[in-house]
Nucleic acid binder design. Sequence first.
DNA 1: GCGTTTCCCATTGACGCCCATATGGTCCCA
DNA 2: TGGGACCATATGGGCGTCAATGGGAAACGC
Lengths: 146, 146
Amino acid sequence: MGRFLSHATNRIDSKGRVSVPAAFRSVMAQSNIQDLYCFQDFVFPAISVGGSDLLERFERQIAAEDPFSPGANEMSLLIHGGGVFMKLDAEGRLMVTEFIRDFTGISDEVTFVGRADHFQLWQPKEFQAAQSRAREERRLAGKRSS
Amino acid sequence: MGRFLSHATNRIDSKGRVSVPAAFRSVMAQSNIQDLYCFQDFVFPAISVGGSDLLERFERQIAAEDPFSPGANEMSLLIHGGGVFMKLDAEGRLMVTEFIRDFTGISDEVTFVGRADHFQLWQPKEFQAAQSRAREERRLAGKRSS
DNA sequence: GCGTTTCCCATTGACGCCCATATGGTCCCA
DNA sequence: TGGGACCATATGGGCGTCAATGGGAAACGC
C-alpha cells in the first residue's frame, strides 16, 4: 500500500545530519523497515535507500543467474561493494557521510526522492536536471507515437 | 458519467490554501475518489490531479517493461519522484505546497482545468497562453486538412 | 585526550482541524 | 414580480500539534 512518493529538500545541519521527511518515515514504519540499506544507484548519481528486502531482492537476482557470469559478478560488486547499512537517530535524522557526498555531490542540502519501494538522496540541482531530462525524453517519445 | 469539465480560477489564502471548485469535488465524490494523486505533468507546466487509479495505470505501464531498464527507471523518476498523494481539508481546500509552486509558477491564484478523468492546476497566465497556442495550432491543422 | 557520534531537549515555524464570515444565487411566497 | 429567507461556495482566521532544525552534553573510538 504505502509507497515512497514525491520529493522534498532538507538542509544538512552543522553536524552533518539531515531529517528524513516525515512522510517517508511513516512509510518505513508501516513497512516495518528499520535497517536502511543504502547503495549507489546503477544509473543516476544518487543513493538509493530501502529496507533489507531490497538487498535480498538483488541477491535473489544474482542467484538466479550463473554465479560465475560477468553479470552476476558486476552486480555483486555494485550492491555489496557499493552498499551499506545505516540507521536513523531518535529524531529521524540521517548522517550524511563521505560515502554519500562523494557519489552524489551533496554538500549542504539533500533532495529526497520517492521511488515507490525505496527512496533516493540527490544533490538538488542534479535531481532537477535529471527529472527534466526524463520529461523531455518522454515528451519526444509521446510525439513519435501519436 | 461525471467528467471534469471547464475551468475556474480561485485565490490562494494567506495560509497557502485554495478551494477546489465545487463542481470538481462533486465529480470526485461520485467517482469515489478520496486520495488525490497529483503529479507534475509530462508536457505542460501544470500539476495533474486524479484518483489513485491514475498512478496505478502508470505503474502497470512500468511493470510491463523490464523493471531494470532505463526507461522504467526514468518513468518512475517522474511518476513517483514527481507525484504525491494529497488530501483536501474539511472545506474542500488544497494546500499549495512548494512542490506545486515550483513546477507551475503558481503564486497567488490557481486555475483549475478539467481534463475529463482528471484535472489540472495551472498558473492562470500560463493556462491562457497554452490554450491560445493550442487553439492556433488546431486552426492551422484544420486549414491543412480541409 | 581529542574529534566524532549518539542521546537529549528546546525552539520555531508549518500544517491540520475547527469554526466564522461573506458573497452570490435560488426558491418561495406575498 | 419583487423582496426576503435560505443555501452553497469561497474565503478568513484561531489554535493545538507535529515536523524540521539547532545545539548542549555525555559516550565512544582512535
